[in-house]
C-alpha cells in the first residue's frame, strides 16, 4: 500500500532525541521504564536491608533464566550513559556467557566496555570477584542461580520465610556442626553461607570461598540478582560479611600448596586447574582472572610500564 502522506505523519511523530543514546534502536537499557522502576525499587530495599532477599517481578531477558538474567536486569536498571562496563564469567572477560551479556549491555546502551577494573564502573560477574581491589567507583553485580542459603535444611518456602523473618538460623548451624563432625572439615565449597550485618544469612552466589573475605567491609556496593528465583539482595560498602563457622574452625579458602599460575607465576590469585591431556601429564594451574593475569605478566616483563596496559 502506497501511503506517502500517512507515512509523513508517522515520521513526524518519531521523537528527535539528542541524548547520547539517540542512535540506539532499542530502549536505553533495553527494559521499558516500567520494568526498570520496579527493579530499582527492589534494589533500594536490598541496600537498605542488607542481605534480605527482596522479591521482584523478574523480567524475561534475551538470555535464558540461569544464564545471568537476574544480574542483567540489575545492570540494565542501574546503568547510565557514563558507565563503563566489564563482564566476567569464571573471572574471564572472554568467557562465552560474559561475551554474550556484555554484547547485550553495550548494544542496548552504547556505553564503552573494558576488561580492566581500573577503567570500569559497572562490573557484572558470574562466580568470581576480580582480583584487583575494587573501590567506591565500582558497583559489582553478581549473578545468582540459587539465592536461598537455607534450601539444604528446609524445603518448604513458607517455613524458609519464617526463618529469615525471625533470624532463626539454628538449623543452619546444626547442619554445619554435623558436617564438621562427620567430615572433619566444613565441606561447603562455593556460595559459602555468610551472615550479613549480623542479621541475614546469604548465599554468596557460587563465588569460591577465596572471594568471600573481599565482600567483608568492602569499599564497593555488591548487588546480587537471581532472575529465575526472582530475588535481589545486596551487600552495601563497609558492611560485615562473616562466613558461618565455629570459633575453633577457621574459615578456609581454596589453596593448593605449590600451585602457581603457568602464565604469570602468581601464587596470590585464585587458580584453576588445566588438566593434562594424557595420563602422564600432571596438568598445570592458571589464574581464573584472565585480565589480572595478563597485567601481572606484563608487569613482570616490563616493570617500568607500571600497572596499566
Amino acid at each position: 500500500m502506497n501511503t506517502p502522506l500517512l507515512q509523513q505523519v508517522l515520521d513526524r511523530t518519531t521523537p528527535v532525541d539528542d541524548s547520547p543514546a539517540s542512535h540506539l534502536e532499542v530502549n536505553f537499557g533495553l527494559l521499558d521504564e516500567y520494568s526498570k522502576r520496579e527493579i530499582r525499587r527492589a534494589i533500594l530495599t536490598a541496600v537498605a536491608v542488607p542481605g534480605y532477599q527482596v522479591p521482584f517481578g523478574s523480567r524475561e531477558m534475551p538470555v535464558a533464566r540461569g544464564w545471568g538474567s537476574g544480574g542483567l536486569q540489575i545492570s540494565l536498571a542501574i546503568v547510565g550513559p557514563y558507565d563503563v562496563v566489564k563482564v566476567i564469567d569464571q573471572g574471564d572477560d572472554e568467557g562465552v556467557n560474559a561475551v554474550n551479556l556484555r554484547r547485550l549491555i553495550v548494544s542496548s546502551t552504547g556505553i564503552p566496555e573494558s576488561t580492566t577494573p581500573e577503567d570500569s564502573t559497572l562490573i557484572q560477574t558470574r562466580h568470581r570477584i576480580p582480583e584487583d581491589p575494587l573501590d567506591e567507583r565500582h558497583t559489582l553485580v553478581l549473578q545468582v542461580p540459587v539465592p536461598e542459603p537455607l534450601r539444604g535444611v528446609e524445603r518448604d518456602m513458607r517455613e524458609l520465610a519464617r526463618m529469615h523473618a525471625e533470624a532463626d538460623y539454628a538449623r543452619m548451624w546444626v547442619s554445619l556442626y554435623e558436617d564438621k563432625v562427620r567430615n572433619g572439615v566444613i565441606t561447603r565449597t562455593t556460595g559459602y553461607p555468610c551472615l550479613v550485618n549480623g542479621r541475614y544469612v546469604i548465599a554468596t552466589t557460587p563465588i569460591p570461598r577465596w572471594d568471600v573475605p573481599r565482600l567483608h567491609r568492602s569499599r564497593f556496593l555488591a548487588l546480587f540478582g537471581a532472575g529465575r528465583e526472582k530475588r535481589i539482595y545486596a551487600v552495601p560498602p563497609h558492611t560485615d560479611v562473616e562466613p558461618l563457622t565455629f570459633e575453633d574452625v577457621p574459615f578456609e579458602v581454596e589453596v593448593t600448596p605449590g600451585a602457581s599460575c603457568r602464565t604469570c607465576s602468581s601464587t596470590e590469585s585464585f587458580l584453576v586447574e588445566i588438566p593434562g591431556a594424557t595420563a602422564g601429564d600432571g596438568g598445570h594451574w592458571v589464574c581464573s582472572d584472565s585480565d589480572w593475569c595478563r597485567r601481572n605478566r606484563e608487569r613482570l616483563q616490563h616493570p617500568s610500564r607500571g600497572d596499566r596496559s
Binding site: G66, R188, T190
Partner: peptide, 22 residues
C-alpha cells in the same frame, strides 16, 4: 526450568575447582 537446566552447560570450572579442593 529449561533456563536453569541449560545453564549447566555454562563453564563451571571455578566452582568445580572449589569442590575438588574440598
Amino acid at each position: 526450568a529449561s533456563g536453569f537446566l541449560e545453564h549447566l552447560k555454562l563453564p563451571h570450572y571455578v566452582t568445580f575447582r572449589s569442590m575438588m579442593e574440598r
